[in-house]
Amino acid sequence: MTVEIVLLLLLLGLIAGFLSGSVGVGGGVVMVPLAIWFLGYTQHQAQGLSLAVLAVPVTFIAAYTYHTSGHQLDWRYALVIAVAFVVGGYLGSKIAVDLNQQMLKKIFGAILLIVAIKMIFFSGAKA
């Protein structure tokens, strides 16, 4: 691994980590596109990289910061979701690895668009 690659990987990690901690996005939303654009990864490789990074509890400290800052975080809910996330991740990966890369990119992009439109125009969050 060259120094340039290590610096690029550190930059990707810092960007994804910063966005994860500040606005709750990082894995798929940030790391997948950055891995494709800057590392030349395929969609499958980028998704695998994103999942591999999240295999370690990298966001625990950020979540703990929110919790200790007075924001009500129900760890029981998080645990239940995490268990279901593992199962869903396994099932989703079994399907994704067999999809054509172009189809996978289209599905990924469509999901990002739908979420973006919903967040921008139909945000029903209650304070």
Rank of each mutant, 00 (worst) to 15 (best):
A116L: 12
T65Q: 04
L10S: 11
L79H: 05
D98K: 15
M1Y: 12
Q45H: 05
I81F: 10
L112V: 13
L51R: 14
V56E: 01
L39T: 09
A16W: 01
Q102P: 03
A127H: 07
G40L: 09
L10A: 15
G17E: 13
P57C: 02
I61C: 01
G88K: 11
Q45T: 04
I81H: 02
K106G: 10
G70A: 08
Q101D: 09
L104A: 09
L19A: 09
V30M: 13
V86T: 09
V6W: 15
T65F: 07
A82S: 15
P33G: 13
A110H: 04
K105V: 01
G27W: 08
G88E: 03
V115P: 05
K126E: 11
G109I: 03
G21D: 02
A62N: 09
L19G: 07
I107R: 09
N100T: 01
G88P: 11
Q102N: 02
D98T: 08
P57K: 01
A110P: 05
L12D: 00
Q45M: 05
I107G: 05
I36W: 03
L7I: 05
G17I: 01
V3C: 07
L39N: 11
N100Q: 03
G17M: 00
L12Y: 03
M31F: 10
Q45L: 03
L99Q: 15
I117A: 15
G88M: 07
V32R: 13
A62D: 05
S22L: 12
G26L: 01
G27I: 03
